[in-house]
């Protein structure tokens, strides 16, 4: 009887252990995934082909933009998050084209495609020795603003290439559900 119950306990332990192995085993997507180059806000994160330095984050309900000479105000279902960054190429001219915002629970927000007409957004061509500023603009759920991570890579499929991972740190969420310091309207016409 003792032996039998010991066996059952052993088997259960094995099941739990195997479940752990099964879910924690890296698969193809993980093996050939991007290699992170980590850093914090205001750090200079050095990847293989480019360096990036995130200067500041701003949150806004609306964005004021200039489209072909006409003023336009863009709203969003969540909140606009605008990150000002500086890029520099390392050994070779390169094009940085992909950025996304990963929230604290892993939801990943790609850079918005609604401002494709605007200058200073990705994709940005950078040359060695000539740093360049750019804006990364996201639409995110307000609950994904806190402790988010900014992911920046040259190409969409950054297989085994470096990807900058910048942790953006804590952001307080105010009573109205917006990130602290969020403005109503942010003017994109202001120079970088």
């Amino acid at each position: 009887m003792m032996r039998k119950s010991a066996n059952i306990v052993l088997l259960l332990l094995a099941v739990v252990f195997c479940y752990g192995l099964q879910i924690s085993k890296p698969h193809y997507g993980d093996l050939i995934g991007p290699i992170p180059a980590r850093g914090k806000l205001a750090d200079t994160v050095v990847g293989r082909a480019f360096e990036v330095h995130a200067e500041k984050i701003e949150f806004a309900r609306k964005l004021k933009v200039d489209q072909f000479g006409r003023q336009k105000v863009l709203t969003t279902g969540g909140v606009w998050a605008v990150v000002t960054v500086a890029f520099a190429a390392r050994a070779e001219s390169t094009v940085v084209s992909v950025a996304s915002w990963r929230g604290p629970t892993g939801l990943t927000y790609d850079q918005t495609e609604r401002l494709s007409f605007m200058n200073g957004l990705l994709p940005v061509a950078v040359d060695p020795g000539l740093p360049r500023k750019a804006r990364l603009i996201f639409e995110v759920r307000p609950d994904q603003a806190n402790n988010a991570t900014l992911l920046i890579s040259e190409k969409l499929v950054a297989a085994l290439d470096s990807q900058a991972e910048i942790s953006l740190g804590p952001v307080t969420i105010t009573a109205d559900g917006l990130p602290g310091g969020a403005v109503d309207t942010l003017d994109m016409a202001e120079p970088l």
Partner: peptide, 16 residues
């Protein structure tokens, strides 16, 4: 066509 300097850095043609 690219420019190469003494340290091996390479510049591609610019669009700026």
């Amino acid at each position: 066509i690219v420019l190469v300097d003494k340290d091996g850095r390479r510049w591609s043609p610019t669009s700026i």
